[in-house]
């Protein structure tokens, strides 16, 4: 029914010479553009998470080594740059990525919900678990990040909260039942989020291809499992006394 029908005014609009809004504007206004913003910001956050997770594993090298590493994170970039400069650059990039990711997700979700105002009477489960939990999983991860910063960056809610002793603070958090629960639940949500998010980003950026699909899905699963296992290994190590 929609196949070949071309209204006449279309021909006229093809010759319009009106000024077009800038590409960036068009990008942000379109659904595909907002998804591109989500894909790129998600990619930045994913890179950060990989580095973060690998850094966390230093905890298995003992208190001195871990605390020295944590101290180095504060000063890296010196002496070319001032103390903490590079750290702040990283923080600003991450914060920008987080805000862009959340704002785009929020706006897209509202559009999506409005596009299906009446639900089916005969509902059925659509999409995989990882896909269905993107929104709530994202909310869980965002809440976790707030807690995580208050716990281990500023120390406000840490049971020990001693500055300059991150190793001991980590052990203190994971010696509480709630610390372990919050952390492990959030890391499982993170794994699921990455499982769908990584592949979905490849779709959105148009880099997926029938011949590449399986490899991309396998990479997504691999990254999700590696990050979840890597992160969760720390509370497990504290719980089992490997790290104390």
């Amino acid at each position: 029914m929609t196949g070949a029908f071309i209204p006449l005014d279309v021909m006229a609009s093809a010759t319009d010479t009106g000024r077009r809004p800038s590409s960036l504007r068009v990008l942000w206004r379109s659904t595909i553009g907002k998804k591109t913003v989500m894909a790129v910001s998600g990619g930045i956050l994913l890179l950060y998470l990989i580095v973060h997770m690998l850094g966390n594993l230093k905890i298995f090298a003992g208190s001195t080594s871990f605390n020295e590493y944590a101290e180095w994170l504060r000063v890296f970039g010196e002496p070319a740059l001032g103390e903490g400069w590079l750290l702040w650059v990283v923080r600003v990039v991450l914060l920008t990525a987080v805000i862009a990711h959340i704002v785009a997700a929020w706006q897209l979700s509202r559009l999506d919900i409005r596009a299906r105002p009446v639900k089916y009477a005969h509902g059925r489960r659509r999409a995989t678990y990882a896909t269905r939990t993107m929104r709530w999983g994202g909310v869980i991860i965002a809440l976790f990040v707030v807690w995580h910063i208050l716990d281990l960056t500023t120390g406000h809610v840490n049971p020990l909260g001693e500055e300059g002793r991150p190793y001991e603070n980590v052990v203190a958090t994971f010696s509480t039942w709630y610390g372990n629960t919050i952390y492990i639940v959030a890391m499982l949500a993170l794994g699921l989020h990455i499982r769908h998010g990584f592949w979905s980003a490849a779709q959105t950026l148009g880099v997926n291809h029938p011949r590449r699909d399986r490899a991309l899905k396998a990479t997504a699963t691999g990254l999700a499992v590696a990050l979840t296992v890597g992160f969760v290994s720390v509370p497990i190590a504290v719980m089992t006394g490997i790290v104390s």
């Binding site: 068009v26 206004r29 379109s30 659904t31 595909i32 907002k34 998804k35 897209l108 559009l111 999506d112 919900i113 409005r114 596009a115 299906r116 659509r126 999409a127 896909t131 993107m134 769908h196 592949w199 979905s200 779709q203 959105t204």
Partner: peptide
């Protein structure tokens, strides 16, 4: 490509979350 995507968005269809349905 630009115009068809703009028209699609203007009609109030939702965005793609790569569900595959």
């Amino acid at each position: 490509t630009r115009e068809m995507v703009a028209a699609m968005d203007a009609e109030g269809f939702g965005g793609c979350t790569n569900v595959g349905e």
